[in-house]
Amino acid sequence: MRIDIISCVPKLLDSPFSHSILQRANDRSLSEVHVHDLREYSINKHGHIDDYAYGHGAGMVLMAEPIFNIINDLKKEREYQEVIYMTPDGEVFNQQIANHLSISCENIIILCGHYKGIDQRIRDEIVTREISIGDYVLSGGELAAAVVADAIIRLLPGVLGDETSALTDSFQDGLLAPPVYTRPADWKGKKVPDILLSGHESKIDEWRLEQSMERTQERRPDLWQKYLESHPEVTSKKKKGKKK
């Protein structure tokens, strides 16, 4: 997979892709992340890529022409399945979107907003998907772009050491992940649950599912409700349990 990120402050993205899993993915040629400086496509000698918004109000807007030109140049080299704009008013990013993008896309452009955003005509004519990472505002889309890229790349085959690891993450099955433990089995008098030391894989899986359900119900009632809606058998089991 190749991800091209367009930013007017590209140095903000130097660190996220130079360490850990993302760096290993790049070293193994499983993914490529290229960060492009929008200022290299300024349309005048002063390097301007933004201007005042029409109407009234404070804040600058990224101009359409520089964005159009850089995306047009990238599209001359390869086909892109998505041109994603990071914006607070986009659809809220979740694991299902990450799964879809990792499976269905080979090349992605991520456009980082800045200031008051980008000219609406770019959003109307070129952007194929608009994504937010939460109901808050950042100084720019760079950190959000790094979050999206990380969530996608770690799902690619061969990126994680254990291929099943991503499948047991929180949100993959609509639930939060269960608690996890490692050595020592007894740490300052606090012991690992006996079931995890039993060696009975089916019982351990059952325990983990129960823990995931309890944790989701307690911490994320919104997710729990969605889970119940898509798993009506869980509701019926709980009702039978109460009758007994």
Rank of each mutant, 00 (worst) to 15 (best):
C8Q: 04
V9E: 10
P10M: 09
P10T: 12
P10N: 11
P10S: 06
K11Y: 03
K11W: 04
K11T: 00
K11S: 08
L12P: 02
L12Q: 11
L12H: 06
L13I: 04
L13M: 14
L13K: 06
L13F: 03
D14G: 06
S15P: 03
S15K: 12
P16N: 15
P16L: 12
P16C: 09
P16K: 15
P16F: 00
F17G: 01
S18K: 15
S18R: 13
H19A: 13
H19E: 08
H19T: 15
H19N: 08
H19F: 14
H19M: 15
H19P: 03
S20E: 08
S20H: 07
I21V: 12
L22P: 01
L22R: 02
R24I: 13
R24Y: 00
R24T: 13
R24C: 08
A25Q: 03
A25M: 05
A25D: 01
N26W: 05
N26Y: 05
D27I: 14
D27H: 04
D27V: 14
D27Q: 13
R28E: 12
R28A: 10
R28L: 14
S29M: 12
S29G: 04
S29W: 05
L30A: 04
S31W: 00
E32N: 11
E32H: 07
E32L: 07
V33A: 07
V33F: 02
V33D: 05
V33L: 14
V33Q: 07
V33T: 03
V33M: 10
H34I: 09
H34N: 13
V35W: 03
V35L: 05
H36Q: 09
H36E: 07
H36T: 11
H36S: 03
D37R: 09
D37I: 03
D37V: 02
D37Q: 08
D37A: 07
D37K: 10
D37S: 06
D37W: 07
L38S: 02
R39Q: 11
R39M: 13
E40L: 15
E40S: 11
E40K: 15
E40A: 13
E40C: 12
E40M: 15
Y41S: 04
Y41C: 07
Y41K: 10
S42P: 02
S42W: 09
S42Q: 06
I43E: 15
I43Q: 15
I43P: 06
I43C: 11
N44I: 02
N44M: 11
K45Y: 05
K45W: 05
H46F: 01
H46T: 05
H46G: 03
H46R: 14
H46M: 08
H46N: 13
G47P: 04
G47W: 08
H48C: 09
H48F: 07
I49M: 09
I49N: 01
D50N: 08
D50Y: 00
D50E: 10
D50R: 10
D50Q: 10
D50W: 00
D50T: 03
D51R: 10
D51K: 09
